[in-house]
Design a protein around this nucleic acid. Structure first.
Lengths: 198, 198
DNA sequence: CAGTTGACATACCGATGGTATGCGACCTAC
DNA sequence: GTAGGTCGCATACCATCGGTATGTCAACTG
């Protein structure tokens, strides 16, 4: 049962992040104490503070994990097609479905902006799923599918729309709501490549 | 200096809510202690707990105040016209401008969903600005300006888009971003009444 | 194998949200 | 108008929690 130090370090940090993720997702950041987390892994606060600067730093690691998983699912969905437009719509739909996960809900969308100050949260979100969204939009503009326009505002409008929709869907009881939302989102996206007739 | 008890009660609660709002908006909910709040008003925690069940209840009252102000501004903007479509767009634009207020930012959009559990926050937001949005959409469907479709998903998509856009605009340095966002939002809204040509 | 570093545990502290209780000003009933 | 009750608030206190200081034993390094 001899373990190398590097492996031991990786094991404990991973265990802490995993346990923290479970508790944060279930009860919310504020309602989870560090004692709850370390007890669940059979460690003490000394171990936690050896690997993380403070509670927020541990939460940061959890958010990184969750966001990377969401980003992976979005990318996987987008890569199923070569057509930039289909990649955009597929990515958006994949994001909505991924956000149905309660972990994503509470950690990424509810506690994330409040615990990490909003700017830091935005930076992380940008680096994860937001990145692909703005890239997809840029590509569509470049190839002339949607008209020339500033990308940043559009990215935030769409990203915010999907975030809020995901939160709403989480507590919705009617299964139809998910489909209705995807349809409504598709309509909005479609409007980009069928600009209004003036 | 005799005050009736009812007035005294109203005065102190109002003072507490006002002071709490200032501090919550400036430093965020978690960073403000109850001692900070009562010191600023010249009272003690005893007074606070006589009027509010706990810290979250005080925050709830603050959110109610902020949301009612935002709703008032939205309604005022919407009432300038009789045309349902103009009332929708004017309301949306007014919401975006109202959300530029740092109080609205931090309290309503960042801390709100995390402190009040999301469902409660959503209920309050629904009762305030969200109400007018869905009513406006319903009216437009009824009069045939936009096609028949489920209202709830659309409401949440648009509401989320504006919330996120407001947060982004708050830390944006370029003044043009606000105008660009309003334009982009108008495009999305316009797509509702100029459905895609199939 | 000696000395150092790293991975934790233990013990402790200050701050903070929350509670129990006491007191004086106001209000009501007679 | 005054006695008893209620209300508005202060004081004192408690438990918990995030964070720190320090000790200890295993693992690495020369």
């Amino acid at each position: 049962m001899r373990r190398t130090k590097a492996q031991q370090r990786q094991d404990t940090t991973h265990a802490l992040v995993t346990e923290a993720r479970t508790l944060f997702a279930r009860h919310g950041y504020a309602a989870v104490s560090l004692a709850d987390i370390v007890d669940g892994v059979g460690l003490t606060k000394g171990a936690l503070y050896h690997h993380f600067d403070n509670k927020a730093a541990l939460f940061h690691a959890v958010v990184e994990q969750v966001q990377s998983e969401v980003a992976a699912r979005v990318v996987a969905a987008a890569e199923t097609s070569d057509d930039p437009w289909l990649r955009l719509t597929a990515g958006c739909e994949a994001f909505l479905r991924a956000s149905a996960d309660p972990d994503v809900q509470q950690i990424m969308l509810v506690d994330g902006p409040a615990i990490l100050r909003w700017h830091e949260w935005r930076t992380m979100d940008e680096a994860a799923s937001g990145q692909h969204l703005s890239e997809a939009l840029a590509e569509l503009i470049e190839q002339g599918t949607i008209p020339e326009q500033p990308i940043a505002p559009l990215t935030h409008l769409l990203s915010g729309a999907m975030n809020e929709a995901a939160l709403w869907l989480a507590q919705s009881t009617r299964p139809r709501d998910l489909d209705d939302t995807i349809v409504a989102l598709s309509r909005l996206l479609d409007s980009l490549r069928h600009p209004k007739l003036t």
